[in-house]
Structures are given as structure tokens and as C-alpha cells.
Design a protein around this nucleic acid. Structure first.
Lengths: 197, 197
DNA sequence: ATTTTTCCCTAACAGACGTTAGTTTTATTT
DNA sequence: AAATAAAACTAACGTCTGTTAGGGAAAAAT
């Protein structure tokens, strides 16, 4: 029977993954050693292998857990009855929120996925491409309906997705505006930049 | 007398730095070994040390060369007699152009600087902060003059700088729009998002 | 109280890393 | 042609890496 540790909802593996996310974000996947990680968890490096199978597995967990969450959200939004612009805003807000509240894992998923190995790497590349294409389709629908100014959909997608990753600067700031205000300001600028005027 | 190699304008060190930029972008600084780099240059790893002093020196070169170029540009623009919005547009266009034409080095400077070591790391952090603050001041000036909608300047800066780094997706696309069109679309969305309407 | 299971430890492994030192080869200068 | 300088090579070094194996301690189950 798997023993529950530290907190009933959190296994040792969860702790390892959470600490790993923090270190992978701070230093990068390759620059973080298993000995570094073990030190933060509070065990010896060799002990980690009672709970995980490999360093690579940790990265896979983080990347696919985050990717899945985003895919599920966009599917839900895309199936809803909203204008294209409202859909885009909802997706944008979700990205911003995730980047504020689940920063470590979202950052790692977004910036360190290139260290995955096949077949996970190919899988992730496909997922990311499909996700961008899906966002692009929503934007194109908005252009057809006259809600969104005539622009290159791919460009709009890359702007929004990368602008959100800029929240890493917000996390590093000493004096930062409130999360809600950050979200509203970003939406104002980004959605405002899309709107037909 | 230092011997000129390969091309009168390009020393062996220049070749090493250019190949390094490519590999650091593709794989990350830590995941790129000196043996990897040497293979791409066409020598043994130990031979690199006839031209460079260390792996760290290569990263310093790339990061500070790019940073200096950006600082010089914003100083020139800031000293000019233009509206705040025009200044922002000029800076944005410069960033976009650099990201299109000098992709490898700009990407590495933007994404791998955290692997610098002190005092270079502290120096780089200070430079980046000062740069963002400078952009923020221009935006605030634009707000005072009624050119730019009332928003959080720091948020606007983080959006623009990170949106530009999204050009990495453009580089990876098979079917991509022309550089000029990409630039115009990005400016339309981002500057459009700032304009008082 | 005893047995079983889980988890941590130490020790070790094989391989890779960045870099140095000395030698050899190639290029340049005289 | 000979001497000198530059650049490449091989070999090696000390350290670090991810991971495995086996033993012991702690926790859980009986």
C-alpha cells in the first residue's frame, strides 16, 4: 500500500516534482542536478529513485500535466457559445492566471520542454503546434465576423502566448501590481490590440 | 600578429561564438558541451582554448554584445525629438528586426543570460532592469501626453519585450509570413494596444 | 511482539564534463 | 631554407553527472 506522507494529499513524488519545478525554473533543467534536487527535498540523490524512475520522468510529468490543463481549457472554451473575441479573452485570462498562480510548472512547461526526449518531445511539439493552430482558428473566425482587425492570425497567437510568459518579469519584480490588475492590464492591451476599431 | 582565417573579416573566435550561439539557442547553454561545439567548429574541444578563455566567456560575449546594441539604440531614440508613441514604435521595430536578422545571438542573450556568473550576472540584471525602466518612462510620458491609454507601464513593457521573443515561433514555422509583414502585424497589434482610442 | 513493506542510507559505477599541459603540425616571418 | 609563431592534436586531470545495488532503519500491517 502506498504510504501517504507529509500531507494526505501530497505524496513524496509530488514534493519532488514541485521542488524540481522550482529548480528547473530557476536554473534550467540541465543545470539542475539530481544532487541539487535531493538537497532541496531533504534526502540523498539516490533516495529520489524510490519515488521517480528518472530525471527525465520529472520533466515529462511537469510538461504534460500543464499541457493537458491548457488543452482541456481551450476545448471547453471553443465548445462554448461565445464570440471569438470573448473566447480569446477567456483563453488569455486563463493563461495569465496559470502563469500567476502555477508559475513554476507553467514556466518549466513553456521554457524547458525542449529537453524532453522522443517520443515525448515529438508529442509535445505536435501538441503545441495544434494548440497554436486552434487559437489561430478562433482568431480567424473573429476576423470573418468583423470582431477582430485583419491581421496575421499566427502573429497574433505568438504575441499573446509570449506576452503571457512575460509574467516572469512580474514575478521577479520587487514592487509589483496586484495579480488582478496585471490580468486586466494585459487583457486591455492585448485584446485591445486585436479589436476592430 | 594575429592571423586572419577563413574570411578577412572573421576570426576563428568569431566562428566559435557564432556556432556557440546557434547551439546555445537550440539546446541551451548547459546542455551544450564544449565537445559539441568543437564538433560544429571542426576541431577538438581542447583546441577551442587557443581562441577563447572559457565556456563562460563565450556566453558573456554573446550576451553583452547584444545588450550593448539594444542600449545604444534606445539611447539614440530617447534623445530624438519624437512622440512617445513613435519612440515606442521605433524601439519595437528594432527589437523585431534584431530578432529576425540576428536571431541566434538575440535569443541567447534573452533566454540564457541567467547562466552568467557574477559579476557579469549582476551587471546583466542591472542593465535589463534599467532598460525596462527606460522603456517604462517613455510609456509614462506617452500617458501624460494623452498618446497612450492609462495602463501599467511595467505591464506594457513586459508584454512588448516578451511578445517579440515570440518570433522564435516564427523562425520555427514552415510556412511563415514575410519578415516585413510580421513586423507590421506585430506593430499594429502592440502599438494599437497602447494607443489612446 | 513480530513480520513485512517502504524508504532512506552508503557505496559504487560508468560516463561525461571543462580545462590544462605538452607535443606535433601548419603557417608565417625572416 | 630556417626560424619563429600560431594552432591543432593527444592525453590527462579532477570533478560532476544520473543511476543502481544492497543493507539498515523506520513505518505499517498482522
Amino acid at each position: 500500500m502506498a504510504k501517504i506522507k507529509s500531507n494526505r494529499t501530497s505524496t513524496r513524488k509530488d514534493i519532488i516534482v514541485a521542488k524540481a519545478a522550482k529548480l528547473f525554473r530557476e536554473k534550467g533543467y540541465s543545470a539542475t542536478s539530481m544532487r541539487d534536487l535531493a538537497e532541496h527535498v531533504g534526502v540523498e540523490a539516490a533516495s529520489l529513485y524510490n519515488h521517480i524512475s528518472s530525471k527525465a520522468e520529472i520533466l515529462q510529468d511537469i510538461c504534460f500535466r500543464v499541457a493537458t490543463k491548457f488543452v482541456l481549457f481551450i476545448e471547453e472554451i471553443d465548445a462554448s457559445n461565445r464570440s471569438a473575441l470573448d473566447k480569446i479573452e477567456a483563453i488569455l485570462r486563463f493563461h495569465i492566471r496559470q502563469m500567476i498562480e502555477n508559475y513554476e510548472e507553467v514556466y518549466v512547461s513553456d521554457r524547458e520542454w525542449k529537453h524532453l526526449t522522443d517520443p515525448y518531445l515529438s508529442n509535445m511539439q505536435s501538441q503545441r503546434r495544434a494548440y497554436r493552430q486552434r487559437m489561430g482558428s478562433i482568431i480567424e473566425e473573429g476576423m470573418r465576423r468583423g470582431e477582430i482587425k485583419p491581421i496575421d492570425a499566427s502573429t497574433a497567437v505568438l504575441i499573446m502566448l509570449h506576452a503571457v510568459s512575460g509574467i516572469e518579469s512580474w514575478h521577479r519584480s520587487k514592487r509589483k501590481i496586484e495579480g488582478d490588475k496585471l490580468e486586466d492590464n494585459m487583457v486591455k492591451i492585448l485584446v485591445g490590440g486585436l479589436k476592430q476599431s
